[in-house]
Design a binder for these strands. Structure first.
Lengths: 343, 343
DNA sequence: GTGAAAGCGCTAACAT
DNA sequence: ATGTTAGCGCTTTCAC
């Protein structure tokens, strides 16, 4: 029977049919648990996210789930709330349930901790965030490039004073984006970059903007470290009656609001999240099969600038529109929907 | 050793310590697979959703995952795209991987099919949508009441001509909401209800609105069968320069845009999704333990009206504002953020 | 090509 | 209180 179920080569046609006949009649189903016991794997992957309800995690989860299905893996999703403690408990729990490997996509820098618990680094693939420790396997976006594209875009629109609302310092996603921002500004004279601290929350966006607007010389454009923070920025500007993009332009990262582009129209840099999810599974699965000769598997995906209404249009009020050439830079996508009015 | 690991009662303190000592030194971890084989369960639940990227599924998934963690269950999420075929494949796959039970939360009426594949109805708990077939276990919102609350709210604001953009006919979520809408209107003379077909997509919302606006006598308020559809409605109104809520009021269901309430401010009826997820797991787990005496476990949760900007404010232009008493109806929550301007 | 048997690493029941 | 043993339902190896 076992040979028939597994489609083994050396089974006579007639026997095979007889067995399948019997399987039908008895409603027999092979026990996946017994198989797992013998093979030593459950074909289940753990996906660690900060919080499935925020940002782009649902998209990532979908991409991961789809690819995993193709490879016959189950995906167990776990929220870590970016808390060390919770992460530890969750990883422990997944391990105790017998997951074969992890895709670790939450944002904080807890790679040492997770690797220590899991034991085998070949069972962990980092996605979305680049681990600080060398030698890890990962699939990430090029955050530095992403920030460059965005900053460049704003400078092309004539902005010379740009604010950046950052995330926590232990999140490489944030530090890399800040770095790309600052590098790009430094390459261009007569530009000023302001960086405000934040924590990935919309509130940190509101707070950062509020402080700048209360200051003597606010920026004419604001970049938020991700789209959630950008929402906070937009809310605060809205509360104060500041027009976007006429008075201040706004942009974010991740394209987490793509489905609302008609209403919100936030300029952003899209991570290729479908590719990220797909590759994450592919690499992890090959790792679990020991197909990768012990080399660290590291992939960096190209981000894509998505220009929408919150930056589109005219140059900032203070600066004269010099050297403005909107759109069609190599990596950019113009996504103008309709002129915006009132929701 | 087994007794120590499982914290069995009849073990001497000293022996226990010796064993734990050894466990420490050897880095021993009990194999969850072997345990699963003996106990006949994997402690894994399958969560079937239409598409994790839409509407309120991420919230549901989080609530489910949290409760499942407390009960030491893993949650494998699967998207069905509301397709019969895919659903069948996914259920098959989850079963072949050995999940103990299902939380079925996608929207279409495929209960017969799923129950047939699973075999045992006590392994399936329907959430979010009420199954047409009697005797199933489920946790749902009171959709009829939800629609009543919303319709009532609009009538209280003075609206007498209200449009409803429905979902597919085989989704009880849609038919029940339409029913509540129509019942409420029927109870009130001089009111007119219009129902447009749709499919839960934003596009169907845009289309429905467009048709009404092109007609002789468009409604002064529009209810969308869920918040995604409402987004489509808002987009179309925006494109045409119709002011919300001054010209037309808009509302949805699910409170899927809660995190964007500052920017979009959509009036909606919130399903108590955290409770739904929690109860879904609790009930399913008790079902799997055969604690429920064979009775169908059915729970209906009270919805909660959340009034925001898209309906707040003045009566519609055409109707005189008679009998308008906004707000504080028993089940309602007022959630006025700030006056809206421009994003 | 097919049948028989030895595990996989646990748990539970039974001796001691 | 502790040691021993018979499975759980597969896969794999080895005889036939």
């Amino acid at each position: 029977v076992s040979r028939v179920v597994r489609d083994a080569a050396d089974v006579n046609q007639t026997t095979r049919e007889r067995v399948q006949q019997a399987i039908q009649e008895l409603g027999y189903r092979a026990s996946p648990i017994a198989r797992a016991l013998v093979r030593g794997q459950t074909r289940t992957l753990g996906l660690l996210v900060s919080d499935i309800t925020n940002a782009f995690y649902p998209q990532l989860a979908r991409a991961v789930e789809r690819q995993a299905a193709l490879d016959d893996y189950l995906v167990a999703i776990c929220g870590t709330d970016d808390s060390r403690q919770l992460t530890q408990r969750q990883v422990q729990r997944l391990l105790d349930q017998g997951v074969d490997g992890f895709i670790h996509a939450s944002t904080v820098g807890d790679e040492e901790q997770v690797l220590a618990i899991v034991g085998n680094p070949d069972r962990v693939l980092f996605a979305n965030r680049r681990p600080a420790r060398p030698g890890c396997h990962y699939v990430v976006s090029d955050n530095v490039l992403a920030a460059r594209l965005l900053t460049r875009h704003l400078m092309d629109l004539g902005h010379r004073r740009i604010g950046f609302i950052a995330g926590p310092g232990y999140a490489t996603n944030s530090t890399e984006r800040v770095r790309g921002f600052q590098e790009t500004l430094r390459a261009m004279p007569e530009t000023t970059g302001l960086v405000a601290p934040g924590d990935f929350s919309p509130e940190s966006g509101s707070r950062g903007v509020a402080d700048w607007l209360d200051s003597a010389d606010p920026p004419t454009a604001i970049i938020a470290v991700n789209d959630s923070v950008a929402v906070g920025v937009l809310e605060e500007l809205d509360r104060r009656g500041v027009r976007v993009p006429a008075d201040i332009a706004v942009a974010g990262f991740d394209d987490a609001l793509a489905t609302l582009s008609g209403l919100i129209g936030l300029t952003t840099v899209s991570q290729e999240v479908n590719t990220m999810g797909r590759r994450a599974v592919e690499i992890l699965v090959s790792l679990l099969r020991h197909e990768s000769a012990g080399l660290p598997q590291q992939e960096v995906l190209a981000p894509r600038l998505v220009v929408r209404r919150t930056t589109a249009g005219a140059a900032p009020p203070s600066a004269p529109a010099m050297g403005v050439h909107r759109g069609a830079s190599p990596n950019s996508v113009i996504d103008h929907d309709s002129p915006r009015r009132n929701p």
